[in-house]
Design a protein around this nucleic acid. Structure first.
Lengths: 194, 194
DNA sequence: ACCTGAACACCGTTCAAGT
DNA sequence: ACCTGAACACCGTTCAAGT
């Protein structure tokens, strides 16, 4: 029974796991190195043994968030939903993945899944469509997720514009299917005559 | 010739203008209240006379960035390009507009322009398509703009994955036209027989 | 191999007080 | 009407030193 005056001992994985839990509790804006260190009962400087910078730690979190996306099998719409739901699984997940993806840290696991599904569906320009789809999913998820939290903390206007994000699921499905090439040209306003 | 020991006197507009210039010079990450105050030869606390918080100031900048978008006239593709180019006109413009749009500050000038163009084009579901288009444009522009800056400062890998953002203009055009309903179902892999 | 302690150069925001 | 000065409670990061 050594009284252990040095109780805190971690590796890269336990730091990342705790940081990810903390992200989900407090959000990206409040995810500081000092807070993470506090939860680990460790001085902030200790984190720099495991990660070279906060940016590197965030990239690791983004990778973990996107790691659960299934790479093959289903069709484009289901793949896109899988990505969206992976981003939604953690608070500010979409924003985090969007920023670190832009810095081309974080292997583009999500984009691979999309292009693969597009190819299986017979798309000839799967690379371009996959990129466009990823941009849409990331933009959509970021917007929706931030608004979800803003709304739940009720800090905002009492619904002045009624449908800026109305029917979010329908917007998502329409966007994905249009980008996948599954949508007919004009949504039946005037059927082509002749 | 009063020697004026109190040279710095500003209003809301001059603060916003200077902040916008500084944004373009240093980027969003380095746009601190203290830096803005420094450029105005003023104490940081002086800014809080003109803006209640940094968030409010950023929302004003986002509004100014999107204000130049033409509201009516051209078709969907040109409208979308106008939005993208307005975002590109200032460093980190896309990221800034994306975050403040999510907080539903910043009237959705851009979305109005898109739905209007969609309606003029005959779309029956212009609201949903307009939302999807905005999400795509914001996601795309944020990703591209951040990567542009990362590349120009050469901090990154020597092109390991060759086409993660290859043909960005083509990806943008394809995405916009697909979402606008201008694209035939599958890009001519097998023409419909019958 | 992993952590402490102290330091450096920063943050956003508040508030009494000045002019 | 607009600003100062000082303070409060924070940041990310470095680095010698400990175990």
């Amino acid at each position: 029974m050594t009284p252990d005056p040095n109780p805190a001992r971690h590796d890269r994985d336990s730091v990342a796991r705790n940081a990810l839990e903390l992200l989900d509790e407090v959000g990206l804006a409040d995810l500081s190195m000092r807070r993470i260190a506090g939860r680990l009962d460790v001085q902030p400087s200790a984190l720099y043994w495991h990660f070279a910078s906060k940016q590197e730690l965030l990239a690791e979190l983004a990778d973990r968030i996107t790691a659960s996306i299934p790479l093959h099998g289903t069709d484009v719409l289901e793949t896109a939903r899988g990505i969206r739901d992976a981003l939604f699984a953690y608070r500010d997940g979409a924003e985090l993945v969007l920023s670190t993806y832009a810095l081309q840290l974080g292997s583009s696991h999500a984009q691979s899944a999309l292009t693969q599904a597009l190819r299986a569906q017979g798309a000839i320009d799967a690379d371009e469509r996959g990129a466009a789809l990823l941009h849409f999913v990331l933009g959509h998820a970021t917007l929706v997720q931030q608004r979800m939290h803003a709304d739940s903390h009720g800090a905002l206007l009492p619904t002045p514009e009624p449908d800026v994000t109305a029917g979010l699921d329908r917007v998502f499905d329409l966007g994905v299917r249009a980008l996948a090439g599954e949508l007919s040209a004009r949504a039946t306003p005037t059927p082509p005559r002749g």
